[in-house]
């Protein structure tokens, strides 16, 4: 078991180098000159530009730039971004917000997805099931930005149930609307996955055994059907966590959440290699570790899974 975890953790190294290299190269290859872009319509003197280039190592060839970046990374010195702020400090500001947002979205999609999926599965073919299936299809089909604006307008502005935008002071309460929007699409998938899994397990022999033992319906549903149906759902939830963290760009922009998505978007626009790569590196770590946790959870849920050493 320990060996398995160690091996999985070691696998992070090549994944990490591969993704950072790729992202660094893509930012490097972006057209335009980031330094000139900084100054907009009033170009500074060539000397200033050259000085800035040197400061950000932009005068070096790609491999040297990347090497310097790695070196800094391992000495925990992420450097400063083009506005002169230390990158580490801004990461420390934006990540808690996004983590909060992602966790809230994860909770929303899990609680509602599993509940609705379970009920739909148990009532397969009935009215509730059909309604939920169509509704989830609609949710999947509507793009996030449409959902976001509509909910912002309806719930945030017209009904006033939640704050339409978040602003600088993000907390669990005012993140509820963006978290809902963020979680909605995954919610539909969680629902469908749970439903399919419940439908399959409902007719399993061991469920019949449980009934024949004299267990009440609720106990059969919770301890035998639900528990066994969670196995594929957990896998999906783990994989979706990474997506929730990194893929919140649209949602964060709509609701003005000062999180990773927004920062990443700005950094890409400004061709700020170090910032982009720093953010992506953290996301990669989150993603890999989330997947490892899912795999461990998987073994706990399903004892038939064994890790080879």
């Amino acid at each position: 078991m320990i060996q398995y975890i160690l091996r999985r953790l070691l696998q992070i190294i090549p994944v990490f180098i591969g993704t950072t290299l790729l992202v660094y190269f893509m930012v490097f290859a972006l057209p335009g000159d980031p330094i000139r872009a900084l100054f907009g319509d009033r170009p500074p003197s060539e000397a200033v530009i050259a000085q800035l280039r040197q400061q950000y190592n932009l005068d070096q060839p790609f491999w040297v730039q990347y090497g310097l970046f790695l070196k800094n990374l391992f000495t925990f010195n992420l450097g400063v971004d083009f506005t002169g702020q230390p990158i580490a400090a801004s990461l420390g500001r934006i990540f808690p917000v996004t983590v909060m947002l992602a966790v809230e979205a994860l909770i929303i999609q899990t609680v509602f997805g599993v509940t609705f999926g379970l009920i739909a599965g148990l009532r397969k073919g009935k009215f509730f099931d059909a309604t939920v299936l169509v509704a989830s299809l609609v949710v999947i089909a509507i793009p996030t930005f449409v959902l976001g604006f509509v909910l912002q307008l309806l719930i945030g502005v017209q009904l006033g149930w939640a704050k339409p935008t978040v602003g600088a002071n993000a907390d669990w309460g005012n993140l509820i609307l963006p978290a809902t929007v963020l979680g909605l699409v995954s919610f539909a998938y969680v629902l469908r996955l749970t439903r399919a899994s419940v439908v399959e397990n409902m007719n399993a022999d061991y469920v019949r055994t449980a009934t024949a033992k004299g267990l009440s319906r609720p106990r059969v549903v919770v301890t035998h059907i639900l528990r066994n149906s969670m196995i594929p759902v957990i896998t999906y939830l783990g994989a979706s966590l990474g997506g929730l963290m990194g893929g919140a760009i649209v949602t964060e922009s709509i609701f003005n959440v000062p999180g990773v998505g927004q920062k990443l978007f700005q950094a890409v626009i400004r061709s700020e290699g170090p910032t982009v790569v720093a953010i992506v590196s953290v996301l990669v770590l989150v993603f890999v570790i989330a997947n490892l946790l899912v795999d461990l959870l998987y073994a706990w849920l399903d004892p038939r899974i064994r890790y080879e050493n």
Binding site: D205, G214, R227, N228
Partner: peptide, 23 residues
Amino acid sequence: IREVRGKDVAVIFQEPMTALNPV
């Protein structure tokens, strides 16, 4: 009927692999 199931009347099923909950 739940009282009777498992207590007064018990069932042995065909496939012991699938009739017991694997988890």
